[in-house]
Amino acid sequence: MSRQELLHEIDEIFYLSRGTLSGKEKLKEIEGWDSMAVLNFISLLDSRCAIIVAPDAIAACVTVDDLVRLAELPGA
C-alpha cells in the first residue's frame, strides 16, 4: 500500500472525499476523531498492512502523518 492509498483509506474513516487529507492535519481538529475512528484505523492496519498497532501509539499521534508512520510503509 502506498502512502497516498493509505491517506485515501483514512479519508474514508472520516467520511471525507478521497484526496481531502494531505497528512499535515491535526487529528483533534478533524471531526469524527473518536474511539470509533481509532477502531477503524486499527482494523485498517490489520487488514491492509498485517500490523496490530497498540492503541496507546495511536493516542500519541498528533497529526495524520503520525498515523501514516504507524503503517511502517516501505520507503516511508
Binding site: 477502531l39 486499527i42 490489520d46 495511536i58 493516542a59
Partner: peptide, 24 residues
C-alpha cells in the same frame, strides 16, 4: 484518552484495547 466516558462506579470498556485483544 479516546474520549470515552469513564466512571469507576459503572462499567468501563476501553474499546480500542479490547479490539486489539481480539485481533491477537
Amino acid at each position: 484518552k479516546f474520549g470515552n466516558l469513564c466512571s469507576a462506579d459503572h462499567f468501563y470498556m476501553n474499546g480500542p484495547e479490547v479490539f486489539n485483544f481480539t485481533l491477537r
